[in-house]
Structure formats: C-alpha cells, structure tokens
Design a protein around this nucleic acid. Structure first.
Ligand SMILES: NC(=O)c1ccc[n+]([C@@H]2O[C@H](COP(=O)([O-])OP(=O)(O)OC[C@H]3O[C@@H](n4cnc5c(N)ncnc54)[C@H](O)[C@@H]3O)[C@@H](O)[C@H]2O)c1
Ligand SMILES: NC(=O)c1ccc[n+]([C@@H]2O[C@H](COP(=O)([O-])OP(=O)(O)OC[C@H]3O[C@@H](n4cnc5c(N)ncnc54)[C@H](O)[C@@H]3O)[C@@H](O)[C@H]2O)c1
Lengths: 209, 209
DNA sequence: ATTATAATGTTAATATATTCACATTTTATG
DNA sequence: CATAAAATGTGAATATATTAACATTATAAT
C-alpha cells in the first residue's frame, strides 16, 4: 500500500504535515491547495497532484480538512508502532539534534545516543542516555532501534556505518561529510550542509549576471 | 557561462569535489568515473554526463585528473572573489555550523554572526564575531555579506528573513522548520532535518514489507 | 433561480533527470 | 603487430517530475 509514491512526494508530504500542524494549532480547520502551495513555494497543482496520489479528496470550495489530512499523511508516512532512533556521536551536532527533535514527532523517538568519550558514556543528555559504541549491537537490538543518525567525526563514519549495519539497523541518516556504503536492505540518506551552502552560493553568483 | 547546469548537477559537482579533495590529500592523481560513482552511490554514466556538461574531458584509460577537475569545479561553482556568509542565531545549531565550516572552504567565509541575546553580542565564537540583530543591515553592507544561514528559533524566522532581504542579502539557507518568503532576486534553500528523518523512516517501513 | 466565481481532480503535455547502448580510443598483453 | 580489455563521450531512449488545460461542481452574489 502506497509503496510507489515518488520520493519527492514523500518529502513534500512531510513538509505539508509540518505546515498543517501549525495551521491546526492556530485553529484553522480547512486549507486550500494554493495556501499550502504558497507556504512551500510550489504550485497548487503540485499539491493537488500529491494529494491525489495518496487518495485524499478535499471539498470543493472549502479545501482540505486540516485535521483529516494530517491524519492521512501520518497513516502513510508513519509506522503504526513508531520508530526508535539512535544518535551516533553525541557532539555539537548530535546534541543539537536531540534538542531539536525532543518531543517533535511522537512516531520518531530518539531512545539512545552512542559515543566513545568516557566522559559522556553513562550520562543522560536532554533525556537521552548515552551508551558506549561498543555496546551498539546489544542496545540496538534491545531497544528495537531501526534508524541511526550519524554525527560522528568523518574519520569514524565508515566504521560506525559498519557497526550499525552489523547491529541490524534498517536506515541511516548520515550527516558526516564522508559518504558510507551500506547493503541494499538498509536505506541510506546523506546530507552535507556545505553542499547546500555551495548551491546557494552558486545561484547567487549566476543571479549576479 | 554555465548558467544552465541542472540543479542536481550543481549538487553533485559539490559532492564530487568533496570526494576529490580527499583523493588529492591521499596523493591520488587520477580517478575513473566509476570510482567517483561508487563513492556517491550513483552510476558512472551519471558522473560522465555531469562532467560532459561542464566540458571536462578525461584521459581514456587513465580517467580524470583529480587536481584539474577540482580546479574546474571550483571555477564553475565558486565565485572568483569568494562569498561572505552570516549566521543568524548563534545557538546550538549556529555554533555547530560555525565550528563545522571553519576553514573548510576558502571561498565561503562566515564573517559574522547575529543574535538578540545580550550575553552573546560582542563576543567572538570560534573566531566569528557576534553582532546585534539590530545592526544587521549595517554589518551586512559593510562586510559585503551575500548569503545568510538562518538558525534562529522558528518564531523569528519570518522576521529574520525580512531583515535579511531588507539588508540586501542575495541568498538564504534556512534551517528553521518555518518556510519563509523572499523576493525572486534572492535565492532560497530550505532544509528540515525532520523531513529527512521521516523520509528514512518511511522507506524503512516500506522495506519491511 | 440564474449566473459568475473559485475551487478540486485529472488527463495530457512538457520538462527534467537518468540510463542504455555503443562508437571510439588508449593501453596492456601475447 | 594484432588483439583484447577497459575506459571515455554522447545520441537516443526511458523514467521521473512538473505544469498546462480543462471538465466539474459547490458556493456566493445578483
Ligand atoms: N557541527 C556541524 O554543524 C556539522 C554540520 C554538518 C556536519 N557535521 C558533521 O557531523 C559530525 C559531528 O560534528 P560535531 O560538530 O558534532 O563534532 P564533535 O566533535 O562535536 O562530535 C563528535 C562526537 O562523536 C564522538 N565520537 C567519536 N568517535 C566515535 C565513535 N567511533 N562512535 C561514536 N561516537 C564517536 C566524539 O566523542 C564526539 O562526542 C562531523 O562528521 C561533522 O563533519 C557537523
Ligand atoms: N538544533 C538542531 O539540531 C536543529 C536542527 C534543525 C533545525 N533547527 C532549527 O534551528 C533553529 C535554531 O536551533 P537551535 O537548537 O540552535 O536553537 P537555540 O535556541 O539554541 O538558538 C537560537 C539562537 O537564536 C537567537 N535568536 C533568537 N531570536 C533571534 C533574532 N530575532 N535574531 C537573531 N538571533 C536570535 C537566540 O538568542 C539563540 O542564541 C531553530 O529554528 C530550530 O528549529 C535546529
């Protein structure tokens, strides 16, 4: 069910929901495709197309029901049981992420951090216990952790990815600038902030004529 | 010149360079398209196509000259004079970014941070001076800052974007989860880590069958 | 009640991105 | 020197993503 949604649509559904949650908080009950589109800097057709793909039907002249749409998007992109997540590397970025994610999405719980610094192991940071990387396999199985967010120094990226795979992880979000290799049954997403910044800089340059 | 490169190609060029710089450090002088491809998890044809688009020609049976390719990519995506960058919001993420970027790309210099917390204003963090947001317009003009990275709390995103635009910024990289609006002459890139994590979680879920 | 307006939903068209297929050529090898 | 192997470069084909065009219809205005 819903396995063949385009990757881009998945990303946008997440973004739509983020925007819709804000609308819901403000008490807004309905929203038009062009309103969602405006927020996301895309076209209204794009929004309607995405919603068509997930089989959601709005009300003509009233738009989409905010609450219902949030729920439907949740049914599609969330897992019923929720997904447990681990942070690999409790440094600047790791801690920042834990702070940021705390309580944001109930379906995605950061339940463990891992580090090799003895000063950090055993402590709790923003409610997340920090374990030794040596215990990765054990803890990941015990806590049923499915996804790992890598924020270790680049030189440990390869090793950490290997450890995660060996421990049976199912998805990796790699924030180190070192690309890693994983078997095909592990979903991998990599993001480097420098690439984003260089992209912005490039388009600034060419806009300068 | 080179204005019509696909967006995806720009991103990959940045990634190729990142990988090539590591090869260069290791003393590697040449590299094959399939080696670059392996690192980036893409196909060799994709790599060759991108290099074709930027007009770079390798040597048959020897591959691409690492140093030359790094330089060419630099000529295309970097600005000759370099680009000055500001961080808006010197909190967890802002400081982490400053740390991370420090000395990474000589063409992209973080030359200023802005905050509203009086305890931070006037200090220097990792070599970057922190100014009051009230002085944004002045400092951005004085220091010829072209790009702003937004790491303020979400509720200040709209205001900060407005201030940046008013100050004459040319590009914004928005890390707050609140989408902002900018005029068409300002290039905007937005990234939310939760969207990435939700995407990973989704593909983990559907891989579970 | 009629008409105009403004929204959805969707097919068809277009644009962007990737991959296939293969001609070409350098280099290594027998 | 002939042959095989392995790489590049690229037109054509395909796949993915977006946009245009428009039929349909609920609602508001007259
Ligand atoms: N700071 C940023 O804004 C930023 C941005 C993008 C990417 N990154 C990347 O994220 C990574 C972390 O950056 P940071 O600024 O948080 O660095 P950091 O040095 O503050 O944190 C790294 C943490 O990883 C721990 N660690 C080291 N080896 C480990 C291992 N084998 N297993 C588990 N933990 C280990 C260290 O003890 C430390 O706590 C780096 O690869 C960096 O390039 C950082
Ligand atoms: N921490 C993360 O990992 C993370 C990840 C993704 C996105 N974000 C987003 O990035 C933003 C910053 O996150 P953080 O964890 O660094 O928060 P933070 O509270 O640590 O830092 C925010 C900083 O912005 C300053 N600030 C407040 N109003 C300002 C204004 N008007 N102008 C300039 N500075 C102002 C604050 O004084 C503070 O120093 C938030 O929007 C957050 O949602 C954070």
């Amino acid at each position: 069910m819903m396995k063949n949604l385009p990757h881009k649509t998945i990303e946008r559904l997440s973004q739509y929901r983020r925007a819709l949650l804000i609308c819901l908080e403000k008490g807004q009950t309905h929203i038009y495709s062009h309103e969602i589109a405006k927020i996301q800097h895309i076209t209204a057709v794009q929004v309607r197309r995405d919603l068509m793909l997930i089989g959601y039907t709005g009300t003509l002249r009233k738009g989409y029901n905010v609450k219902d749409l949030i729920d439907l998007i949740g049914n599609i992109i969330d897992s019923a049981e929720g997904i447990n997540v681990a942070i690999l590397g409790m440094g600047n970025l790791g801690r920042a992420l834990i702070n940021y994610f705390a309580g944001k999405r109930s379906q995605l719980k950061i339940v463990a951090g891992f580090d090799i610094n003895p000063d950090k192991i055993g402590n709790t940071m923003s409610g997340v216990p920090c374990y030794s990387s040596e215990d990765m396999a054990t803890i990941i199985r015990e806590k049923n952790i499915k996804v790992g967010i890598m924020t270790v120094p680049a030189e440990f990226a390869t090793l950490t990815a290997e450890q995660l795979v060996k421990a049976g992880i199912r998805g990796i979000l790699n924030y180190t600038p070192k690309p890693v290799n994983v078997p095909p049954n592990v979903y991998l997403e990599e993001y480097d902030m420098i690439t984003s910044l260089e992209k912005v800089a490039f388009f600034v340059k060419i806009n300068d004529d």
